[in-house]
Amino acid sequence: MPPTLTRFFQHLTGLSLLMADTAYWAVLAPFRGKRLRVDDTFKQMTLIGVGSLLICCMVMFFIGLVLAMQTAETLKKIGGLSLVGGLVAAAVMREIGPMLTAIVLAGRSGAAITAELGTMRVSEEVDALETMGLNPVHFLIVPRVLGMMFMGPCLTIVGVFVAMFGGYLIGVFNLGIEPAIYWRKSFDMLALKDIYSGMIKSVVFAGLVSNIACYFGLTVEGGAEGVGLSTTQSVVTSIVMIIASDCLLTAIFYFI
């Protein structure tokens, strides 16, 4: 087997094992007397939420503008200009919101987590935890994963509204759609399924991003240089995994 492939499977098993371990410490262990580290989890939520909110809003605002301009072009030709709001809302809720938010999370908070845990690994802080009998997964990973899995959907919802607002600006001030009509069409076209599928996607993406970030952080080797390398790997892997799992989830929700 070529070494790249061996390394790929090595990472894949390592990541799966970490996810199983995280699930154990997050879900089963609290029933066996190992309390969840709630304050650490809240701290991570704040860090992740505050860290990614502004970038997330900016990105989603521009996407809202872009989508409105792009769809208006086509809709004008078929005489359905008032549908702009609905198209923006559906596209953003189903697809673009969860995905872009996850990508922002990977680039901003995921990279920060990998760098932080990687630094702790090379400065032997993770070893120190272990020798004190504190499980690193329990102590470090679970708060970060839960924090991101909670903030992912929250940021997505905020992002969706920001994008719809962006679309609204184009629709009302540039295309001359009535504000009330714009909003009504927006919400009319949003089915319940769009909302829950979007939310499920954003939870899955956040789970992937946080676990990947933690995995690459904990497995850093080779000092400060290794931390930089792992951070890049973490972001790249996250983005690929987000899009791959998006494809899978979309197929599950809309084609099967």
């Binding site: 702790m120 400065s123 032997e124 070893d127 120190a128 020798t131």
Partner: peptide
Amino acid sequence: RKKFGVLFQSGALF
């Protein structure tokens, strides 16, 4: 583990 303490090379303070 409770019976021993470890001082790491870099200190490893959090």
